[in-house]
Amino acid sequence: MSILVRRSNLMVPVTNEQFVAGAWRHGSDAITLDLEDGVTPALRAEARELVMDAVYTAGKGAAEVFVRVNKGFLEADVDASVWPGLTGIMLPKVESPEDVIEASDVLNDAERSRGIKPGTLRLILLLESANAVMRVREIIAASDRVSQVGLDESDLSASIGVNPSPEFDPFVYARGRVAIEATAAGVQPVGVAYPLTTMPRLLPGEDMLKVATDSKNLGFKGIICPHPSWIASVNTAFTPTESEVDIYTQVREVFAQAIAAGTAAVPFAGRMIDVPVDEWAKVVLATSIACQLRDTEKQTALAATSG
């Protein structure tokens, strides 16, 4: 079972020198250098010049590095971004499968000319309109490069003409649709529980941990973080806890014994353990191992760079 661990993805405007320089120290699994909404249009050309060095800097802590490109300047932005150390592209405002195919074609060319193994650059897709939500299935199936997909609920609010109010979540349907379609397609859905998506804010660690846990319980596999203060809570929330690992280890043992004894359903710790629970136990344990590996990689990189 190969499990992608991309729990936290820190967004950093590539033009913010200080943020870019410090991004790798915050322990996020991924860092996305923003060339899009986080960059004033007047600085766009200048921003592209900064990407190559920023990709290197952002990768110092073993984070995966993405660049959020402008859909309207795809070729120029990809051209500025495809350097060794880049994991892939975050493609915003995706409306159709054709958008994804176009991006994938541009990446094909960039891989070939820059000597990067074909097909390795990944895509994270952001859906920002009602139309994209309705077409999510075709959109994520359009390229094998698609690794994660999320809603930009802030832009989606504007797109459907909603002034979001914290009490009434307008995206229960859209979020659920994206989570289910993505999961079915083997693509990770990413996102955060309402209302933080439309109203991002800084929260005390404990509150952030609760929001991140709620997000995991909505089916998401990670959160795109607008601020480094989210990262630790997000990583914790999306990592199986010690007690979960403990319980699911026992679940696997108890279930194996039950099978050996000729039954496929057995009570354990107040629950009924059967095939789906055992399957879930496998996922939790594999996720735990994958998270440990990822954390070790990051710690090693951090130690090497600091030392």
Binding site: D37, G38, S154, S157, N163, T198, P200, P226
Partner: peptide
């Protein structure tokens, strides 16, 4: 609160 491009669209 953090207000970005999305918030300005809203």
């Amino acid at each position: 609160r953090i207000f970005d491009a999305g918030a300005s669209l809203q």
